[in-house]
Design a protein around this nucleic acid. Structure first.
Lengths: 165, 165
DNA sequence: CTGGTAGTTGAAGTCAACTTCAAGTCAAGC
DNA sequence: GCTTGACTTGAAGTTGACTTCAACTACCAG
């Protein structure tokens, strides 16, 4: 056992590429299980690295941490997740990505038809009116086109608002 | 002159679909020119509606308000912008959209090759490592894939951070 | 046993883009 | 002239995902 079996925050952070503070944050949110030494320091298992990889991947796809938490919660309790467990989780992302891509392509096509006209009509232009136009409510950022917005895709949380990077 | 030539905040908000508070906010940022009545109330010209359409379109594409401000600042001073002025501004969006789409498609292709393997290797998996992996710095959201992140596209601001919806 | 590196906590800060609030003023129809 | 709805301001709050800070403690090599 040359390589230690448990990892400290710093080690996990270094290996995963996340900041220490992010790792602690995730643990606090319950996304990352950790045991504690008698002195109160966190110790992570190797599998935590896989969880962090999942988190990074999910965030790259555009999931919120709430959604990540929900996904992680769906993992089988007790046993260590298998490859197919992880695979199952990421399978649904395909759809999400497709939707995002479709939305952007639609926007681009609209842009192509708008370039040159310079109309930017509030009523007619596709770019300023991608399918819908009414503002949803709540504070926070809201710049992605419909279909790219978090709230549009997430039916999960009951909270208010909505998000970005 | 049935239809009034100048518009109040409320009218502009209603017609543009933005909230009153957003319109005031934009005016405060200098994105939206307004005159004042003797009593201090804002009065907008009709052209403000076009500016708002531009702002909405730009935000839908994913531009920050800073970038919108920069774009608006490039409009000819003095005269009212023409259609070709607006057209010129929106032409560069095409590239941005292409980049965003490319990034998402790459992510999806990677996902396809990853589904089933469930590896999620921090080193090898495309999904958790879309091209790059090192965290940039700064607080704030950061979930979009490279090429979709605000900071990646914006060379403008000198501020810290980085962003998400 | 000692020193230094790495870890701990809670509270507060950051960022963007707004919204909400309170306390008060303006504009306009009757 | 009055009432009422729309407007004004500045300050503070919201959201998500973290980061930063200060004050302190743990771990471990030597």
């Amino acid at each position: 056992m040359r390589t230690t079996d448990v990892l400290t925050v710093g080690e996990i952070a270094r290996r995963s590429g996340f900041a220490d503070s992010a790792v602690r944050y995730y643990e606090r949110l319950g996304l990352l299980p950790a045991t504690r030494t008698s002195g109160g320091q966190r110790r992570f298992e190797r599998s935590a690295l896989r969880r962090l990889a999942f988190i990074r991947a999910a965030r790259n796809i555009g999931l919120s941490l709430d959604e990540v938490a929900a996904a992680l919660a769906s993992l089988p309790a007790g046993r260590t997740p298998t490859r197919s467990d992880w695979s199952r989780l990421s399978r649904s992302w395909r759809h999400r990505l497709d939707d995002q891509i479709d939305a952007l392509v639609a926007l681009r096509d609209g842009l192509d038809s708008c370039i040159g006209c310079g109309c930017l009509s509030l009523d007619r232009c596709v770019i300023s009116n991608p399918a819908d136009s009414a503002r949803s409510g709540g504070p926070g950022a809201a710049f992605l086109p419909a279909g790219l917005r978090r709230e549009d895709a997430a039916q999960a949380q009951a909270g208010a608002g909505r998000p970005s990077r």
